[in-house]
C-alpha cells in the first residue's frame, strides 16, 4: 500500500514543527505551575479583558501565564491548518483520523485550560490538562513520523538486522510507562507533593520512606516509576545496540532517549534538592514530554520496520560471527 502514498513534504514539515512547538508549550505550562502563576491572569479566554494585558512581558507570572496562552493559541491555529491540510491531501484514511483526533484533543485541552483557571485550579482539571497535553503531543508525533519520506516510501529495512518485533514491544511498553510516569508526576505536582520526600536520592535517609501518606506515597511512586522507566529505556538501548546495523531511525532516537532519561533523573533530583527551584522544575516537565516523544518515535519506527519485514516474506534470525541478524529466509 505504502508505495502508492505520496510524500507530502509541507505536511510533514508542519507536523514536525508543531510537535516541537508543543514540547515548548508543555514546558511553558510547566513554568506556569512551577511559578504558581496559573491564576495570575484571572479571566479566560481573554487576559484582563484584553488580548494582551499591559506590560505582560515585564511581569514574571503574567509573562508565564499569558505567554503560555499565546503559544497555545498559536498551536491551536497551526493544528487547525495542519488538520485541514491533512484532511484535504492525505490519502490514508487512518492518518486523517489521527489528525481529526488531534484537533479534538487540542480543543479539549484549551477548554480544560480555561476551566481550570475559572474554577481556581481544581486538581482533577489541572492534572487532566497536563495529561491530555502529552496525548496531544503523541498524536502530533504520530503525524510527524507517518508523513515522513521514509515512512511513506515503504522502503524495506536496509539491513534486516535484529528482532525488530521484540524491540517494538519493548518500546511500546517503555512509552506506556513513561506516559504513566508523567501522569504520576502531574498528580504529585498538582497536589503539592513535590517535596513530600525532602531528600534525594534516598527517602528520609533510607531506601523506603518510614511512613506513607498520600503525599509521600505519590512522591515515592513517582521515584519508583522513574527507576522502572529508566530500566526499560536502558534495556531498550541494549537491545537496539546488540543489533549494530539496525536502522538509524531507531538507533538515534533510542540514544537520545537514554541520554535524556539521565538528564531527567538529574533534574528530578535537583527539583527536590533546590526546594522546587523554578528552572529545574520547569525543565523536568519539558524534558518529560521530550522523553515521551522520543520513546514514541522509537516505537513507531520499530513497528514500521517489523511490519515491512513481515510484508517482505519470512524472516529468520541467524547468527553471523557472534552478531545476531535477521535475514530473509532462502526460499
Amino acid at each position: 500500500m505504502s508505495s502508492d502514498t505520496p510524500f507530502l513534504q509541507g505536511i510533514h514539515r508542519l507536523a514536525v514543527l508543531l510537535a516541537g512547538y508543543v514540547v515548548l508549550l508543555i514546558t511553558a505550562g510547566g513554568l506556569v505551575k512551577s511559578l504558581e502563576a496559573g491564576l495570575s491572569v484571572p479571566d479566560w479566554p481573554l487576559s484582563y479583558g484584553m488580548l494582551n494585558p499591559p506590560r505582560w512581558w515585564q511581569i514574571e507570572n503574567v509573562r508565564a501565564e499569558h505567554g503560555h496562552r499565546l503559544i497555545a493559541g498559536t498551536v491551536l491555529l497551526l493544528t487547525l491548518a495542519l488538520v485541514i491540510w491533512i484532511v484535504r491531501r492525505e490519502p490514508r484514511k487512518w492518518v486523517r483520523g489521527v489528525a481529526l483526533v488531534a484537533f479534538a484533543a487540542v480543543l479539549a485541552q484549551a477548554a480544560l485550560g480555561g476551566i481550570t483557571v475559572l474554577f481556581f485550579l481544581p486538581t482533577a482539571i489541572s492534572v487532566s490538562h497536563a495529561g491530555l497535553a502529552q496525548l496531544f503531543l503523541g498524536f502530533l508525533v504520530v503525524l510527524a513520523v507517518v508523513t515522513s519520506r521514509r515512512w511513506v516510501s515503504g522502503e524495506s529495512a536496509r539491513n534486516l538486522a535484529g528482532p525488530v518485533g521484540r524491540i517494538a514491544s519493548l518500546a511500546t511498553a517503555t512509552t506506556v510507562v513513561i506516559y504513566l510516569q508523567i501522569l504520576l508526576g502531574a498528580v504529585m505536582r498538582h497536589t503539592g507533593a513535590g517535596l513530600a520526600i525532602p531528600d534525594f536520592p534516598l527517602a528520609f535517609g533510607g531506601l523506603i520512606p518510614p511512613r506513607l501518606d498520600f503525599a509521600i506515597g505519590i512522591h515515592f511512586a513517582h521515584r519508583v516509576g522513574a527507576l522502572i522507566a529508566a530500566t526499560l529505556v536502558f534495556w531498550l538501548l541494549g537491545r537496539v545496540l546488540r543489533y549494530a546495523s539496525l536502522e538509524r531511525v531507531v538507533v538515534i532516537p533510542t540514544w537520545l532517549l537514554a541520554v535524556m532519561v539521565l538528564v531527567q533523573g538529574t533534574l528530578g533530583g535537583l527539583v527536590v534538592l533546590t526546594g522546587k527551584a523554578v528552572l529545574p522544575n520547569t525543565l523536568h516537565v519539558g524534558n518529560g514530554a521530550l522523553l515521551l516523544a522520543l520513546s514514541l518515535v522509537v516505537t513507531l519506527w520499530a513497528r514500521r520496520l517489523d511490519w515491512v519485514a513481515h510484508q517482505q516474506g519470512d524472516v529468520a534470525e541467524v547468527e553471523v560471527f557472534g552478531t545476531r541478524r535477521l535475514e530473509r529466509a532462502v526460499s
Partner: peptide
C-alpha cells in the same frame, strides 16, 4: 472564592 483582574 473569587478572582478578578485589575489591569489599570
Amino acid at each position: 472564592e473569587f478572582n478578578q483582574g485589575q489591569p489599570f
